[in-house]
Amino acid sequence: MIVLKDADKLYKGDGFETKAMDHVNLEINNGEFVAVMGKSGSGKSTLLNVIGCMDRLTGGTYILDDTDVSDLGILKLDKLRKQKISFIFQNYELMDHYTIYENIELPLMANGIGSGQRKTKVQEVMERLSIAELKRKYPKQISGGEQQRTAIARALVSGNDYILADEPTGALDEENSGELMKIFKDIHKDGKTIIMVTHDKDIASYADRIIEIKDGKVS
């Protein structure tokens, strides 16, 4: 369960100060499929990064499954992220010099899982996402839709409960986007909590609930 209370995120630099999150109060239950919508620059990615333990709040509290994340040290934050969170990005974020197989294997490497077990798990998700025949290829050699499926496979392979997707369909055509949403629905049935940022109403309609963000505020 995700609980944000009076959450603030302030970006500060020389000459600028942006309030990307402004007193956000939000609860997301386990197993929910939530879409986050809002204009560009409204703070959607910021919210996702905070929830995903990639960045910290500058005010308020964030509680993830009974752990108060707000005052965790860097090591504990890294560990929490490893145990609970998987990301899917608009631009896929695959490692260019690693094969599809190696990319998907990455979270398992991080968890120190033995090679035999890694192989079966990777094979399993690749088959589920119908990309098994791509395993020796490199990201540059496959299509955008295939790359995004690789990224989803990587997010699923670790078995983490929270899947955070930042504009997962942003670079895909309609057909591929539809395919992707079917996959998301499927994953959701497994009991995963999905938080998906999008500015496409049709895509958002796949979710159980839509959260609107405007200038860092949740309405």
Partner: peptide, 16 residues
């Protein structure tokens, strides 16, 4: 740089 970011978002620690 990008590889490190990807690793971090996929379970690697900074220490790794």
């Amino acid at each position: 740089k990008k590889d490190y970011g990807i690793m971090l978002s996929n379970g690697f620690h900074k220490a790794n």
